[in-house]
Simulated assay, not measured.
Amino acid sequence: MNQHSKQVSLSNANVMTSDMTSHYQDKDDNVFVGAARHEKTLKFIKYALLLDAIDEGWLYEQQGWMFNQLQRYREALEAFERARHLGYANDGWLYKQKSYALNKLDRGEEALEACERARRLGYVSEE
């Protein structure tokens, strides 16, 4: 009976994995994370913003990253702008992410400016 239980658990794990897996994949970074997990994270960020207990600028920065992962680039830019206005104007990572979203929206010149700003702020890509 114990062995049957393990088989059911393994089967359930495979189903969960396929449910959580999505076609959202950043091929540049070789990242593969389920869209459902990103959506859940966005809900947590929304509630955290209501609590006013965590740095709002940081939350908006994370929200922007989640939107980028979900290919919702306009929303990502809005979140990055909020973060910038809340004290993250000198965050190189924010500008690198902003550059990514702008590039995906075919706003190449703005993307280059944001990327250059990230570089000037000392952002070094992990790639």
Rank of each mutant, 00 (worst) to 15 (best):
M1V: 04
H4W: 14
K6H: 12
K6G: 01
K6L: 12
Q7S: 09
V8S: 00
V8N: 03
S11Y: 14
N12L: 15
A13Q: 10
A13P: 02
N14S: 11
N14F: 14
V15R: 12
V15W: 08
M16F: 13
M16Q: 10
T17S: 11
D19A: 11
T21A: 08
Y24M: 11
Q25D: 06
K27Q: 06
D28P: 01
D28F: 10
D29F: 14
D29R: 11
D29E: 15
N30F: 11
N30R: 09
V33H: 03
G34E: 01
G34M: 00
G34A: 02
A36N: 07
R37V: 08
R37W: 06
E39K: 14
E39C: 11
K40L: 13
T41F: 14
K43V: 11
K43Y: 06
F44D: 11
I45Q: 00
K46D: 14
Y47P: 01
A48P: 02
A48F: 07
L49V: 03
L50K: 10
D52E: 15
A53Q: 09
D55A: 05
D55F: 06
E56K: 15
W58C: 03
Y60W: 09
E61P: 01
E61C: 09
Q63L: 08
G64N: 04
W65Q: 13
W65I: 15
Q69I: 02
Q69E: 10
R72Y: 08
R72Q: 14
Y73K: 00
R74Y: 14
R74T: 14
A76H: 04
L77A: 01
E78I: 13
A79H: 02
A79N: 02
R82N: 14
R82Y: 12
R82K: 11
R84H: 09
Y88D: 04
Y88M: 11
D91R: 06
D91E: 09
G92N: 04
G92W: 03
L94D: 00
L94S: 01
K96D: 13
Q97F: 05
Q97A: 05
K98F: 05
K98E: 15
A101Q: 02
L102Y: 01
L102W: 02
L102R: 01
L102D: 01
L102V: 02
N103V: 04
N103M: 13
K104E: 15
L105W: 02
D106S: 10
E109F: 12
E109S: 10
C115R: 13
C115I: 08
E116F: 09
E116V: 12
R117V: 04
A118D: 03
R119G: 04
R120Q: 15
L121Q: 02
G122S: 07
G122A: 07
Y123W: 10
V124C: 04
V124I: 13
